[in-house]
Every structure is written in C-alpha cells, then in structure tokens.
Design a protein around this nucleic acid. Sequence first.
RNA 1: GGCGCAUUCGUCUAGAGGCCUAGGACAUCUCCCUUUCAAGGAGAAGAUCAGGGGUUCGAAUCCCCUAUGCGCUACCA
Length: 486
Amino acid sequence: MADKVRLRIAPSPTGDPHVGTAYMALFNKAFAHGRGGKFILRIEDTDQSRYNEGSEREIIESLRWLDLLPDEGPGIGGDYGPYVQTQRRELYTRHANELIEKGKAYRCFCTPQRLEEMRREQAARKEPPGYDRRCYRLSPQEIQANLDAGLPFTVRMLVPDEGSTAFTDLIRGEISFENRVLDDQIILKSDGLPTYHLAVVVDDHYMEISHIVRAEEWISSTPKHILLFQGLGWELPMFAHLPLLRNTDRTKISKRKNNTSIKWYRQQGYLPEAMVNFLALMGWSMPNGEETFTFEDVQREFTFERVTTSGPVFDLVKLTAINGKYIRLLSDGELYERLLPYLPEGLDEARVRQAVPVIKDRLTRLGEFAELTVYLFGPPPAYDAATLVPKKSTPEAARAALERIRQLLESIAEPWTHEEWEGGMRALAAELGMKAGDAFMVLRVAVTGSQTSPPLFESIEILGKEETLRRVDEALAKLGGTSDEG
RNA sequence: GGCGCAUUCGUCUAGAGGCCUAGGACAUCUCCCUUUCAAGGAGAAGAUCAGGGGUUCGAAUCCCCUAUGCGCUACCA
C-alpha cells in the first residue's frame, strides 16, 4: 500500500442515491485524482433487510450524471474486485476466524431477545449500554457443545479493557478513545455476513485504500476499526472525517426534512456542475476565495486543511441561486441542448430555440422552462377579465385601448420584430394618453394570461400575428360590453 | 446517561497572534436600469467571533472551564 493513493466511497444500496454519497464522492475523487491516485466505489450491501434492488445502478447513474464516476467499482472493473461486499463473504469469515484464533474475537450465542433484555436492564440501572461478555466467559467445552447443537452465533471483537486507541484525523487532529468505553462489537452476524466494522476493515485493506475519507458520524467507530486493523496485523490507512451535511434544524441531513435524493435534483433541472460547485462549498473553500469553480479546480486545490469542522446546513436557496448563475453562463445553443430532457413531447424546436434567450435570465432550474413558457406553446392560462384592467383604469378604457391595439396588430405586416412592436405600442399609448406600461399591461395579459411574464414584445414576435390576434380577440370578448367584472 | 466532534452575520464561509473598527457569497432591504417579472449595477442592514477565565505588549486566532448543538452508543451502514 506504500505510496499509492487510493480512496473510496462505500455507499449502501438501500434506497435513492443520496446527496451525502455525492458529497463524499466529490472530495474523495478530487483528492485521489489530485494526487495521481484512484477513486473506488464499493457497494456495502451486507444488510439484506435494507437491500434495495436497483439502488446500485442508480448510485452509479447519479455519479455519472455528476461526472464523479469512480475508476474502479462494480460494473466498471478494476483489479481489486469484486466491489460488492456480498460477493466477498469468504474473505470476512476467514478473517473473523483468524481473529477468534488469535484471541481477538469470540463467538457469541446470545439471542437478540437476551441482548434486548440486557440493554433494557442497563438502561433501567442508568448504566451505559454494552455487551456484558457473557459468551466471552464460555468454556471451550460449552462453546463446542453450542456449536454441536447447531446454535446460531455471532462473532464479537474483543476490545481491550485497558489503554486507549488514538488516531490523527487529517481534518481534526488527534482523537483518542478509552478502550473501556468501546463495546465488543459484533463483527460477523448470525447470517454469516459481516457487519460494517469488519467488512470495511477487510475491504479497505485488500483494496489497498490509503485514505479513509468519510463522514463525521464514523468518528466513534474509528477506534474499533483501528483495533481490527491491528488485530489482523495490517497497516493503518489515514483517516479524515468530513463534516456532516445538516438539515435547517442542524440535525443530520435526512429524507424527512430535505430532498436527499440525487434523482430529485436531476429531475428539477439542477445542473450537475452547479450541484458539484454547491456541494464543494459545503465545508470547503478555494484558497483564492473564488466561489464559482469546477471539479477540476477542486481537484487541483483540495487540501484537508481547508475543510471546515462544523456541519454545514444544506441550503436549497443557495443551490438554486448557483444553479441560475450556471444557467446564465450557458450559451443559447448549450441551454437548448440541456433543456431537451425537460421538455414536454412535441414542442416545436424552432420555437423552443426562439424562447431560450427570452427565458434564460428567468430560469433557476431547467425543469421550470415548460411552466414559464406554456403560453408560447398553447393557449394562455385562463384569467379573469379584471386582470386585463390596469390599476387606476377602467374596463371601458382597457377595452378601448385593446381595440386600438387590435388595429395596430392588423396594420403591421409579418414578419414583424419586437422592436417594431414596441415602437408602435409606444406611439399608440401616447395617442391614447395612457402610460406605456399600462398599455403594455393590457396586451401582456391578453397574450400571456398573466400580469407577470417574460418580455412582451419578444413573446409576440414568437407567437406571430395570427395567434396574437386571436388572443386579443379573446380578451376583447372577456371585457365584453359591460363592466360588471371590474 | 456515556463517549466523541463541534461553536465567526439568518445560511455557506474567509480568517491559522497585530493587516479585523472581522472580508466575501446567498438570502433580506433600498436605489438605478426598466413594459411586468427577472437579470445586471450601486448601496444598506446584518457577527461585542457561544459565555467565562487565563497566556501575551496584543486573541476570532493559543490553553482551561462552562453552555449549547450535533453524532455515535443495533446481528444498520
């Protein structure tokens, strides 16, 4: 393992691909690649009860979307496979047995019921919970008898009573734990599969992981892992614990209080590069203070010294602002291409391309495009006649103005431009003694169905004479002959 | 409860003893631009650096204590 740089993420395939996984992938890959190393994906599927079919594929798909694909992993290849833990069972059993032989672990025949009862009693006595080592005291004969009787068992690591286990966290510095506060953790479950603690140690060793870079929540497990590494006589990797992403209430980011699925962000139309930029801003910053940057920048500049130690709140508002910025940075052609997956079926390509520059500054997520432009691709949304009437005006005045606008409409020959239209409308407003804005507003509502819309004259240019005329007539009809809607 | 990690504007952060009467970004507010909404530009407001003790000529920066938050405390990861 000497001087190779190899980092990994080890997600569990338990549901939708999680933003926390992307967050870890970002820094692991950036550091590995920045140091000429490899970035590995390992699937930790040892909990069959939480296993989710398809989750592995979606994790990879999400990483691909974010351009954070690993160099090695399931379905990707590499010399250290298999990269799925259930395919490595034999390795874990072998080392669990090795630990038993070395006296660093022991079989435990306690039933889940007894363990639960034990914990309840400990809680009642206000004692810290932990295994009472009943099975550690079993004689060889008793153990053999249990084995012969076919009793199910787990394997527990034997934690020393004395001393302490310390390590240097690359981000936080020296961290130390008294061994006596460490539980005799189960490392091999009765179904023969390892728990996280054994699996992670065995795999990180065999996959020659040089730096374990994971979330803060693993700090308290680290001494157990170190004890296991040492028990097996293996060299220790480096450790770095990144801060945990938080909900607004500062608890660990969760599905209940946040959108944790990467799929959701993709569906909403967040750009992957905006997502990566935002995530990199959580707990890290560029040395030059630049806040808009690429993955390549992170790769080049990443150091553990610049990682913060407190958990950042995942702020959707800020992500959205960054996303809008990235959208505006796109050329019209690029934006059009990026929009494609978010467009409803059957939209006219030429018209979409015309709409892109008009809508770009108003877009914060690609998924918004369809909604912002409905009026360009179908009839305007329903609206009240009252909406047509500008403040401090009357339905009669609005109707009169609209009638004149209709005349103007008919008088201008196609192809028309928004400049022509604006000129015509300004002259008309002056003639009518209306404020230009009010005249525009009447037309705006007639054309878009709303008092707030993308630029009016560009919209009219896109819609064309016939359709605009139709909408003006419709508005006129709404205004009718009376003012009782007012 | 035990153990661990943390604590700078509402949020993300800069800051590694004097450059800090604490800087930037998002959000907020105001103004400009302007046909609405945006975008853009210019400003404003917003943090006695959790609190208290030290160390030092000098502390957001070093040490200690307290408080608070979070995490772990499963045959989940």
